[in-house]
Nucleic acid binder design. Structure first.
Lengths: 335, 335
DNA sequence: TTCAAAAATGGAACCGATCCCACTTTTGGA
DNA sequence: TCCAAAAGTGGGATCGGTTCCATTTTTGAA
């Protein structure tokens, strides 16, 4: 493989000039540029990215940490991030902490990224404690958090107003006449699950229809967790005409189970999800849900990370608002 | 940040000894090892991965090329690959060619990986022409292809017997008494879509119930393509009691559309998919499908790539067989 | 006890870029 | 035409590891 020196020699210039030509920084005369271009072509020269990284002290690598890769939620995120990074010539390396058993394990996954000398790190939070996030954020200035808001991380945390999202869900169900509703939440240790859940309950109560504990199931955001929670809900003798699910995955599981039992959606029970992932138009019936702008948020987080890390000036936005997306899984209450 | 030299000095040994200690190759006396370990601890030393890559001429980076990241199929692959690579201390970098307009564009995405000096490359094929694959495979010995079989790439291409898969689908429908079936295929330029499609048609014909052209819709494997194809199918006056979809995504779209039109599955129409992705247990009704061992195949491909690239000896398997997975979306024919 | 083979060692050369700096050439306003 | 400022240039030092090799130390069978 050819090196800068080979190119420089063939072009009859110094190695510094070749380097300047390639990186586009510094000035190179038209004449030199042409000679260099020809030499590069002739030698089929490609810069060695490791040598470049070593001497420039930047790897052009961005680490992305996610708590799981099950289901469409994180996939949409990954897809958006990969695309934004590639557009700017950066590469993503991924750490999926899904198989981590302990919190220590999860941090080990983060170290796996950090030891790789990433220029910047993107954490899709909701599971790490705020304390740990703050610790890492301090050590690591080029760190940005998706879907988690903390004041300490102002300008570096990107979030959706899940409080609003929870309320939108409550209002939608009440407007349809559902006063007795049930809900399946995610793990309440996660900020986003907690926010939407509390806001939902609060809004229901505020509007005169508090949700009693027997109609609240604390579940998880995975398919397996969803199945358990759905089974738990259907095993109670609670009486309800609508269910708010903490995410779309769980809503999908619920619809499938209701279908199996011959319970009509939305005829007998209305179901509303949260997130508005890829598949929501294609459940049967199509899922009414709270649209969370996951892709926009991910892109903003990416942009700001690139800004911090490489001194760019890409547009970004820290806070996003969810909106109601009504499809066919929710309908008016009929006794 | 501390360097090997700092460690060597503090430990009172030479830099070579430290290097040998860290990499685990070569021999280091117990006494030196202890001193080095102490020095590393004390200085909180972490090797610089770029310097290491430059001098050892290996980046520990594996490039992964996929034609798309929509839907669960490629994500299941990514998830498996990330996990296998992390287990062996390697990192994945991803190139999603989804936004590529031309074939040239798609190859540019491959170059994006190659220019990054990946030690090895994993291509999830089905879209690249065999010629291009062969060309790249020749240039690049550490290249492995998932879900595509070619004799030229013996030992480096991993595939599922989609011929068998197509036949299993046909037999299942016929056994249920469905003699008039329709099918929605993927793009037939892709090897995997072509194989299962032709085998399906062939098996139907062989068993006495050929599928007439009006009941064959060439679609795509995306949600949008699925919607179009489903619309096209439902717009014909073709008469059928079952539909074989080229993948689960399309089957899901079909079930949703049938539900919307009040057509019962499997009461009026049976639907069978292909792949057995994450969500198949959770459609309403749960999707009968051909189980393709995507995760096993991906892991094998990964293992063999690691073998080729780093001289390991991990177990792997080149060919996989699909199997029938019966759930609730297919049922006996009733006039 | 002896000594050849094996184990352990230190440090220089090297990987292939970038970046800095001292120096030369070009530019354009007075 | 002159000359200060700007543009362009060459090449050596540097980044922080690995690898090689000549040399020293240890090992254990005879």
């Amino acid at each position: 493989m050819a090196t800068v020196k080979d190119v420089a020699k063939l072009a009859g210039v110094g190695s510094g000039t070749v380097s300047r030509y390639i990186s586009g920084t510094g000035s190179v005369s038209r004449k030199s540029a042409e000679k260099i271009a020809r030499a590069i072509e002739q030698l089929n020269y490609r810069p060695n990215s490791m040598a470049r990284s070593l001497s420039s002290r930047r790897s052009d690598l961005i680490g992305v940490w996610v708590p799981s890769l099950e289901g469409p939620y994180y996939h949409m995120m990954i897809r958006t991030i990969e695309s934004a990074l590639r557009l700017h010539g950066k590469h993503m390396i991924l750490a999926n902490a899904e198989d981590a058993q302990s919190n220590e394990d999860r941090l080990a996954h983060l170290d796996y990224l950090i030891n790789r000398d990433c220029d910047g790190i993107l954490i899709s939070s909701s599971l790490q404690s705020e304390f740990e996030l703050a610790t890492y954020a301090e050590k690591f200035p080029n760190l940005v958090v998706i879907n988690h808001h903390t004041d300490e991380l102002a300008g570096r945390s990107f979030s959706i107003d899940h409080d609003l999202g929870g309320r939108l869900a409550a209002r939608h169900l009440l407007e349809l006449g559902h006063t007795r509703v049930a809900t399946i939440t995610g793990r309440l240790s996660a900020q986003d699950a907690r926010q939407r859940h509390h806001a939902f309950l609060d809004e229901m109560a505020k509007l005169g229809h508090p949700v009693p504990p027997k109609r609240i199931i604390e579940g998880a955001f995975s398919y397996a967790g969803g199945e358990q929670a759905v089974a738990a809900l259907l095993a109670t003798d609670a009486d309800y005409s609508a269910v708010f699910c903490g995410n779309d995955k769980v809503a999908m599981v619920l619809i499938a189970e209701l279908h199996k039992r011959g319970i009509s959606v939305p005829g007998d029970v209305s179901v509303i999800g949260y997130d508005d992932v890829e598949f929501t138009p294609f459940t049967a019936p199509a899922l009414s849900t709270i649209h969370a702008p996951i892709e926009e948020m991910s892109q903003s987080a990416c942009h700001q990370l690139l800004n911090l890390t490489y001194g760019l000036d890409l547009p970004y936005q820290e806070h996003f608002e969810p909106s109601l997306s009504v499809r066919q899984s929710t309908g008016p209450y009929s006794s």
